[in-house]
Nucleic acid binder design. Structure first.
Lengths: 346, 346
DNA sequence: CCCTCCCCTGGAAACGATTCCATGCGCTTT
DNA sequence: AAAGCGCATGGAATCGTTTCCAGGGGAGGG
């Protein structure tokens, strides 16, 4: 009754009156086993509640059958969707997924990576935050790495799956300019001195192509955190009552823009148009619903996992896999009307 | 240069000129090692990029150093928050977390559980969906299980961490009744024939205590999925133009209620008040912001993990751990005014 | 000065699986 | 009928650790 330990392959072999090699063959599917014998083994296993141990197998095969996934934050809707994509793909390929959140901290990311290497995962998918050196070291020791959603400067040789952020921002800018907007605020630039991100560059480039001058005062930096986002949005909208549209480079920034606009009693889109990158669930629940660029988070995760586990051969060739974005027009952006004085801002 | 394989403890031992037992002692921290020897071992390990293999260690110690986490859906904000809590706690205890999503499918859940047992996880945390039998079997073979957010009927012996859903719903009902509402719709009842959930029971009980009759026609069932939620909300609001408030038993149902109300041109809260269980991010972004009951998702995850890994002794005693909820009043519920005919519904 | 005790240390046996290799048997082929 | 082939099977080595056990050597006390 009281089984002292979980049954091992040896117990099953003894119970079925066969050698352990035969039991192994039955469970791993390799080699050939007589039908009667197989049945006897399975019966014994069922009787003993036997489950092959992944540790024993992994030791021998030198693969753990799992992959690691490092995201900045699992509660972020974009990340969550990406995780779901990875899980979906991993499931079809029979691998499990060790997930952890680095919260944008390079040290933490390195720690997690270390742990994953120790676990001998078959590969790692990451939205990297940290130091290129850590990743270079890991790539040397560990199996294989795929970056998702973003890359690390200096590590272009690591295969990656990205959204076409530049294209998304471009379509957004074209849309806003098409509506007549000229003074467009950009929330989410890089800190002064840091290299501008893909989205900021796309914003500047597209405005340039459309012959709209870039007002540096309207391009405001913000870390991807709620407080920083709110501060940035509040700063922009209070400082410059003349902006007619705000382009938020992420959903946190979009959220901040919406809240600040409400705080300042600005009507959307009558007083200010708002649009953002990342079509998260609440965009549709907003009033008015928010125009956004949808990035295929789930597909990114799925493709990254495929790239990691299935397309090992094709990997790394031809640069990053880029998936298209889609402009979802809702009601938060309006055509520019004759300038109307805003209610008492400042 | 080209290392053919990742270094093993044997390689390090050879390089450092010591026995493998000594290397093991250095890395596992057990036993005593001379300072000079330790330094030599560490140097050799660094040189060879050695990382102890969790597979070898796990085989010997019969613990993998990881736990499993089964949620219905990682993209659900509540689940995501709970996952974050588990990750935070697991991190402090030095365990990794294998996450998977069962999507409410018992078969899938059983599969995942099987896989986790195979991986020899040190324990499993689950928001269970499935058959009690599977869990009973797993609990026998595998280490230990903790349920989070919900329990399975017939498995009360499994330790669990829950939110005080009943209390949350009660406070919501009291709030709505206090505002004067009498015809309150409840979205998210159990299907006809199924046992009513905690929230539905709390809804009925509280109304009873407040001497408000329960109109069965206003208690509508819905599976926790977007389409079902929308159908339920649309059905309720179209069928009964006389409901003055809607209590949604989950954020998906709340979302549906908001969208349907907008669709029907009902003003919130003038024509209908809306409140829901689960204070997700968009509740504040809504216009008007939604009154909701906040459930401590992150704490639930954290406590569940603690219970699983740290409080093994205390586990199972004294029934489920119940964490308090909090009523967050925003602008979506108003005092009942004189009945006013609604614009052309039906 | 010798005996003890303790601290380091190395050898070797697990842990639970996979897999190579050898063996025995029944069947076809010449 | 003998040889040969292939399938089914068991034994044993191996994967990378931990850990028990025993041995060697230095220090301190009698």
């Amino acid at each position: 009754m009281a089984e002292r330990r979980t049954a091992t392959i040896k117990d099953v072999a003894a119970a079925a009156g066969v050698g352990i090699a035969t039991v192994s063959r039955v469970f791993s599917g390799t080699g050939s086993v007589g039908a009667a014998t197989r049945e006897r083994v399975l019966a014994a296993a069922r009787e003993l509640d036997y489950r092959p141990s992944a540790l024993g197998r992994g030791l021998k095969t030198r693969r753990s059958g799992g992959i690691g996934l490092i995201v900045p934050d699992v509660t972020d809707p974009f990340c969550a969707e990406l995780v779901a994509g990875v899980l979906a793909c991993a499931r079809t390929l029979g691998e499990h997924v060790i997930v952890d959140a680095a919260h944008g901290d390079p040290a933490r990311e390195a720690e997690i990576l270390d742990r994953l290497v120790e676990q001998r995962v078959d590969g790692v998918i990451a939205l990297p935050a940290g130091r290129a050196a850590d990743w270079r070291a890991a790539a040397r020791v560990c199996s294989s790495v795929v970056f998702a959603d973003r890359v690390l400067p200096g590590l272009e040789e690591v295969p990656s799956v990205l959204a076409d952020d530049a294209g998304g921002v471009r379509s957004l800018v074209e849309y806003l300019v098409g509506l007549g907007h000229r003074r467009i605020g950009f929330l989410g630039a890089a800190a002064a001195g840091a290299a501008p991100g893909v989205r900021e560059r796309a914003f500047r480039d597209t405005l340039g192509q459309l012959r709209v001058p870039v007002d540096e005062d309207l391009v405001v930096a913000a870390r991807p955190a709620r407080d920083a986002a709110y501060a940035a949005a509040a700063g922009l909208l209070q400082r410059r009552a003349d902006v007619t549209a705000v382009l938020a480079a992420g959903h946190l920034l979009g959220e901040a823009a919406v809240l600040v606009a409400r705080e300042l009693d600005l009507r959307v889109p009558a007083d200010v148009s708002i649009a953002m990158v990342d079509d998260v669930a609440w965009a549709e629940l907003c009033d008015p619903p928010l125009t956004a660029v949808a990035r295929p988070a789930r597909d990114i995760g799925y493709r990254a996992c495929e790239l990691l586990l299935r397309d090992r051969a094709r990997r790394g060739r031809g640069g990053p896999v880029v998936l298209p974005t889609e402009l979802v027009v809702r009601g938060s952006c309006g055509a520019l009307r004759a300038a109307r004085p805003r209610p008492g801002v400042r």
